[in-house]
Design a protein around this nucleic acid. Sequence first.
DNA 1: TTTAGGG
DNA 2: CCCTAAA
Length: 639
Amino acid sequence: MVKKRRLDNNGSTGFQVWSIPRAPRSARKKGLYKKTTDGRNFGAIELLASLAGKLLHENENSASRAASEGCNLLLIPKDMLQYKIDTVEKSIKSEDHGSSGGGAFALERASENSQQKDSSERSPKVEGDTTWDGTSVSTNFACCEKESSESKSTVSKSVNFCSEVSKSEKIMAVNEQAVVVSCSNDSTEEHISKPCSTNAISAGRKDDMRFYREDDDENISRFSKSRCTKSKPSKHSHIIIDRRIRKLLSFKHWKPAPQLKDVESFGSGRNISSNKRRINRHSLYYHDLLYKRKKLLDGSCFMNTDEVLSSEGHYRSHGVYVNQYDPAAFDAMDSQIKFSIKSFMIPELLIDVPETATVGSLKRTIVEAISTIIGRGFHVGVMLHGKKIHDDNRTLLQAGISCKGNLDNFGFMLEPNLTQSSPKSIAPQDSHILPCNISQQLTRTLDKVISDMGVSHSSSDPGNSTSVSNNNVDNSHDLDVSLTQDIVTGKPSFESGDLPILQTSLEPLAVVPANMNNKGSEQSQRRTRKPFSVLEVEALIQAVEELGTGRWRDVKLRSFENKDHRTYVDLKDKWRTLVHTASIAAQQRRGDPVPQQLLDRVMAAHSYWSQHHSKQVGPIDGAPIEITDDPVALPSIKV
DNA sequence: TTTAGGG
DNA sequence: CCCTAAA
């Protein structure tokens, strides 16, 4: 899935970026959209670069048009930028000269030049109804090219990158005057509507995206950090890129910040997942996005620009984001450009909290630790299983934190504290970049807290103690890769640009799950494994013996009606594994052993129902088949 | 929504 | 367990 491609357009700055183009599910499923390891696939930046190059030679009209639709995005090499700024400034004043779709046009040509073949990525048209008040919203990218043999530029190039992908719209969201953007799957609607308020726009200027030199992490190069305000609308131009780019660069890397209502059901990923799935196709897309993102973990692919996008297509106005640059992640690739959204980062915080500490003291500890870095103005909430722990007087032990052990459902929540809000102290603009990311650090902190406390498995459910234990093992194991995963999964981040929300929103900013390093968070969170008990297995076998396979819903209704955590899909899966288990040597079986007797029944029922069409002639209640008397039901030896 | 399978 | 094409 990882697509990388270098583009050297018109001899201008070459961009290289990691991009994860999407293809329709069907295409992907059928392998029509296999990744190409030779990097033949286009990259978003490549298109952007092409565009930039083209734009350099386009007339001002294009720029004007672009600026008028600045909700999209811009990516221009810095050296071009100066040029564009000038031209845009002029043309903005003279208004749009009717060069509708100039940007798109450029893009189309660019795509041709870049040998873009994918028909599904046909050059789209600029949305005619997209409006823009002409005010610039800009986000800066400072990029640093890694020196490579093929790179012409030996020195870093700076790029201005203005797009919804990165900042502008997010910032608008901050002020709750968001540009409404609804994203959806390929070839469907996207709406960029409502011009952003200048107010919102002005907030965007704080954003800053940077590229780091891979080989010089500590000496992070910062480049163009220009900003735009409503007073200086044209400081940065905007060039509209079509929805293709938008999808490439943004949607697949966006993730919504959990709202409290989502968080409330944090502990039941299933509910979240299924509910989300019902909302609309946006959420479907989102869900898919997360899924893909999750898959990216394996592919070491990343390009993270965190965004807030609710399933309704509205930006949420609260969220804590941390974007993170992980050198290690890049090491795996010979990428030339690394970039990271400027984030509000916090150095590692190690906090020792005794098990007997109270929740309140834990909160205070966290607040203290963080506030020394970002200042006051917030407080920390502790979430466990989707519920805020309000009783600060309870100890962690009493709160169940030490007992649960399962950090899946444990997290912190940074909340604004209006009484102490102080923009200056909270949002140190252009603050130095600290080496760590808050979510990660919170994670680590929490992990440490938990580990220091020593996980006491005083679980009341003996059947779960093992899984609890396993979870802890997993957590510690995953810790090492949390950085990468943060990037890939786009964990909520804490950006200076977002910080103003701290003063404007009463709602929790976000939940920072303690184990953000886990594969999924929020709605994509995998259900905690719940092994089938022997009794359940027996019930399943019983039901299948009577109903046959292929009637999992009936099986569910019959024997697992009151077990919400066992879906018919689960039952089906379990049966499949049972059949498999029964067919392999006992020595190869894992997990809690299932009595051979039951496995024999499994094989018998499986054989029987594979010979009989369960759907049609399934035995009825009270008249279960006598499998053991059926010749074909004899335990099969075959594998 | 269910079923059936791949992962 | 998850995900999803098909039915």
